[in-house]
């Protein structure tokens, strides 16, 4: 009986110590803030604009200095639409104990156990109304980046729809060894600001391969198709370093 009360009190105190924390995202192109309608250039000299970005963030955990993790349930859908804000956009709210952390980790994507549920029966941020359900391929698009390529022959829409369990992107922004990463959550709660460099997707891969929008099939990067999987893997690899903690 005494043990039960002890557990109850411990749970109560842990809950009482949890403070609200907000994760915000700044969209960047390189080190500059993303601006809708602005024309950018890939390392290969192809000009483009960004039209839409949506992605799931899930399996978030803050990492304590001793390596233990404070894991956060739930997932959120981050949405950036043309003419909407691109800086300091709130993407997820969580409750964690105040204190010092050595960073955080999360996945861009939907956990496997949620990814294959019947999307017709799911509520936002999942479900078909999210605009992230894939329809021809069971599961959700995890990272949806769309834009316009300004090619000599005319403007062409392009999309990068990354999904399937293979392409769930692990983002690791913690450092237990060098003390370079410090996140302080004050007793009153706090904000963690992330930078996301959307242009990282276009960095060349092994052998200099890149997303060449002059080729029609490469304007539709999605799924596991052998036609485009090499480039999808390049984008996937690049995306793992596209997020950083804002200073």
């Amino acid at each position: 009986m005494k043990k039960g009360w002890l557990v109850f009190l411990l749970l109560l105190s842990a809950h009482a110590l949890a403070v609200p924390v907000e994760i915000k995202v700044n969209l960047r192109v390189g080190d500059r803030p993303l601006q809708w309608g602005q024309t950018y250039q890939t390392p290969q000299g192809q000009r483009y604009q960004i039209d839409l970005l949506k992605f799931y963030i899930s399996e978030v955990a803050l990492v304590r200095p001793d390596g233990r993790e404070v894991r956060v349930d739930g997932l959120a859908l981050a949405e950036f639409k043309r003419d909407g804000p691109t800086q300091g956009v709130s993407v997820m709210k969580l409750d964690v104990p105040a204190g010092q952390y050595r960073g955080l980790r999360f996945n861009v994507g939907v956990p496997r156990e949620l990814n294959h549920l019947d999307a017709g029966t799911q509520q936002l941020p999942l479900g078909v109304n999210s605009g992230m359900y894939w329809a021809w391929n069971p599961g959700y698009i995890f990272y949806r980046l769309e834009g316009t390529a300004l090619l000599p022959e005319g403007n062409q829409k392009w999309v990068i729809h990354m999904g399937t369990d293979t392409f769930r992107i692990p983002v690791r922004l913690h450092d237990l060894q060098t003390r370079r990463v410090q996140i302080n959550i004050p007793p009153g709660g706090g904000v963690i600001v992330l930078n996301l460099d959307v242009a990282r997707a276009f960095e060349p891969g092994p052998g200099g391969v890149f997303v060449d929008w002059r080729k029609q099939p490469l304007r539709q990067l999605h799924g596991l198709s052998p036609e485009t999987s090499l480039l999808m893997s390049v984008v996937y690899f690049n995306m793992q370093t596209a997020f950083s903690l804002a200073q």
């Binding site: 078909v128 605009g131 329809a135 999309v159």
Partner: peptide, 21 residues
């Protein structure tokens, strides 16, 4: 449903054509 047969029901299949670019 679909030529790949990867959609399990009509409700979810209809999302495809309604949203495809």
């Amino acid at each position: 449903l679909f030529w790949e047969g990867r959609s399990p029901r009509l409700e979810l299949q209809a999302v495809g054509p309604l949203t495809a670019h």
